[in-house]
Design a protein around this nucleic acid. Structure first.
Lengths: 232, 232, 232, 232
DNA sequence: AATGAATGAGCATTCATTCAT
DNA sequence: GATGAATGAATGCTCATTCAT
């Protein structure tokens, strides 16, 4: 039923680009039930807004309909039930959030510079308003929907750790870093990069994302500490 | 109607002042409505069990009554509504959880040894089953009950950071460590100590608390990294 | 959950006898949840009115609540769901309807007279407004609730057939009737007694129960036919 | 809006006069909206299948569309609403079921033989799976759709009774039977012929139609009883 | 003071019907 | 003329809260 035609996983755009419109118009005048990607995105966008503000249980399907601008019937054509809607909403959000980050390690500069760029990316991402909201919801639902937590972690944190890990191994082999346990090092670096911010944000302690300057400073210190321990 | 007598948020004393206590005990066996601390604890214990297993919304007041072994009427004498019961339950749990930790830094040994002991304590605490469940619930409810998150952080993380921070300042002044920004250093050390575990546990990625051995290893590395960056 | 205190299936009395009232009042002031037979009867009475007029599906639980003068919550304490309420309603009605009949065969008079009295009883019963409504509902639900039909037949028709059958056997042995297949004879006699009426009433062809005179005439003919075939 | 082509059944026919029909057939292959009898039959066939299995309320228009292989729009062109579709479906089924029977009384043989043949026909018909399902549905809906019950009885039972009645009158006049009240006699004979079976089948007590042998035996006894009472 | 039966607003979900394509 | 996506009123049911006992 689910995530049909989101080819690039990045367009949450509600106003569809004209080009695609034309293309569709050419091939078929009307979408099959539950198959119009534009409508699906519209529902997900509304659901996201409501879930984000009220959480899974407090969000009523009625509010979601209103927020999405579709009728209940339509909503239930696209998603079997509230749970599926939630899971899919989180999935789309996760995809949208995690898309951009992964290339930073391939950038130019010294290891410290590359690390720094990556650290800033991670810190910015993890503490962005949307990511925090998504993570809060997922964490809050882990007991009742364990799969959701697994997937979220798997496709978020795990992936970054993998990238970073591989990069550490390469750097170590090239003799530019001294890393025995690259996974541990990767985890350490990620924790250091968002030091304090993530936790604070999760608990609502800091209502707004940290400023770029705060992040920069934090990551700079993270790199300093990290290089002190692992640099040659 | 939070009839808790906790004036400074640190005393968990539920028992009413001695004078009244005595008087009561002497003159009548029976407590005023909603004033029997034993019954209050009993309710909180039941509520904690149910909330922990089902979360705030999915937990029904009925189950809580059953779990606590009291009637609905009684429950509503002690707590105004579900929300208050939840907040108080979390509060008690937080107090219970955070009680033990704070003395570790005053222990004997080199700075590295003291740090190590403290790191193990923090990591063990933060990833214990009860703490994880409590944190998940709090995080999941932050949007709807921001106060709850604030307090939880304030009286948990913040406090440890404060202790650690003060300790760093002292060690720096004594010339045993080189710490410019003790708060940042404290945050870094705490993140390093529970590296990876906390996040994983929150997301249900790791169903059981890390073993003492895992924690030991993780903290050892944390101390190593930390000392490399901040040691003299 | 269901039919608590109906020990002998005979008391459908909605207005409880004063004696019982007193007794209850003496032993406990209040009934357990879902255990007050007066309230149960009240709900069943309301449900019967609504089901009778609209049928199972068209009857809404809301209407039933209103008709019964109880809240939805209460209703759902006494009956697990709509289906159970329906089944129990039908059961009570069946018991109430079928209670009176069975003694007629033991009455005085010639076999023809006894038969006649019984035939009138059966015909009157089967075509009474309440019986017709109950039978219509049961028949209409047989596909979805086969048990219901089975029980209804089992405890209604089957029982009468059994009585009649036994009576025929006795009469045959006493040499007053010539009956080879007493079950068939019993069925024949019952069909003859309500000849045409039952079917007509079921299909709504005859809005009111047949008059006593009509019944008398019909049964008289039934007895005549029957005695012509089975009399000595 | 019942555009059925059933000329005799009391002329519900809204269908246009033959002339226009021809004209249409000649000039264009396409029927006016809701006028293609093949499509109408197709819908009725699908509706019958679904109604038969689920009953009026539980059957959804969606399932019926699927079963009939037409779209909802089309369905609603042919039938104003669910109720009308149901009524028409029942009507067609009634016609189909009752079509075959009426000639049996004109067959050869003694009165007893003719009666026997007719009785077998009636018993077989009334207890056939399709007839039982149809009758159950009609009976279950009588309260909400009284017309439906009236018509069903009128064009089913009533008709047979009429035939049989006329036959009895003829036989009586010919001196072959002694019948005072031919209508009563007809009802008696019909009840005797399906003795027990009809009721049992209606209540789901007997999941399959009675075997030919069972029917034969039952009718044989019916004829015996009947002739004992009415034969010369 | 304690109880738990009763309440009814609120929920997720279904489905007969309409109407733009 | 046919389609089937969209609608939203209506349903069965739950559960936080109240209050008579």
């Amino acid at each position: 039923m689910t995530n049909a035609p989101l080819s690039q996983d990045s367009t949450l755009s509600i106003a569809p680009p004209a080009a695609e419109e034309d293309c569709c118009a050419l091939h078929r005048r009307r979408h099959a039930a539950g198959e119009d990607p534009r409508k699906r995105d519209q529902i997900i966008a509304g659901a996201w807004r409501v879930f984000m503000e009220q959480g899974f249980d407090a969000a009523s399907m009625n509010s979601i309909c209103k927020a999405a601008g579709v009728s209940k019937g339509t909503l239930y054509v696209y998603f079997q039930d509230k749970e599926e809607l939630f899971i899919e909403t989180i999935r789309e959000k996760r995809l949208a959030l995690f898309q951009e980050l992964r290339e930073k390690l391939r950038g130019p500069g010294t290891p410290a510079e590359q690390l720094s760029a990556y650290g800033v990316g991670v810190a910015k991402l993890l503490t962005s308003e949307e990511a925090i909201r998504a993570q809060r919801m997922v964490i809050g639902m882990v007991e009742r929907m364990p799969e959701l937590g697994l997937r979220f972690y798997e496709f978020g944190a795990r992936r970054f750790l993998g990238d970073l890990c591989a990069w550490f191994e390469a750097e170590a082999q090239a003799g530019r870093l001294k890393v025995n346990d690259p996974l541990l090092a990767a985890q350490q670096f990620i924790e250091l990069s968002s030091v304090g911010f993530w936790r604070k944000r999760l608990f609502g302690q800091q209502p707004n994302p940290p400023s770029p300057e705060e992040i920069r400073r934090c990551v700079q210190e993270a790199v300093r500490v990290f290089m002190a321990a692992y640099g040659c």
